[in-house]
């Protein structure tokens, strides 16, 4: 793979709506079993190797809690 990406989710602000999970083309993101301070199952990178840093998740995130990083290999 020529591109690797990674996301950082602000766990305490994430409301676990799951819109990023539905819009992730590489199935990188999932909702965690653990909950944050407000009781939401926050989003996290379940398959970090498959992330391409496409920014789709951050684009649709209603609470702007996702930061996306990308490197070319």
């Amino acid at each position: 793979m020529a591109v690797r990406g990674a996301i950082v989710v602000d766990n305490e602000k994430c409301k676990g709506c799951g819109v990023c999970v539905a819009n992730c083309p590489t199935k990188t993101i999932a909702l965690s079993h653990e909950v944050n301070g407000k009781g939401y199952n926050y989003a996290y990178m379940a398959n970090p190797e498959s992330c391409t840093g496409c920014t789709n998740c951050a684009t649709v995130c209603p609470d702007s809690v996702i930061t996306v990083y990308r490197v070319k290999l």
Binding site: R4, A6, K13, G53, S64, T67
Partner: peptide, 28 residues
């Protein structure tokens, strides 16, 4: 992952025009 998550590799993040307040809206 630590080598990817660096400031120079950032491609998308929260704009500074948005405040740090947590939105009161329902999830999604």
């Amino acid at each position: 992952i630590k080598d990817i998550i660096k400031e120079e590799n950032k491609v998308y993040g929260k704009t500074p025009v948005l405040t740090d307040n947590v939105m009161h809206y329902c999830p999604g």
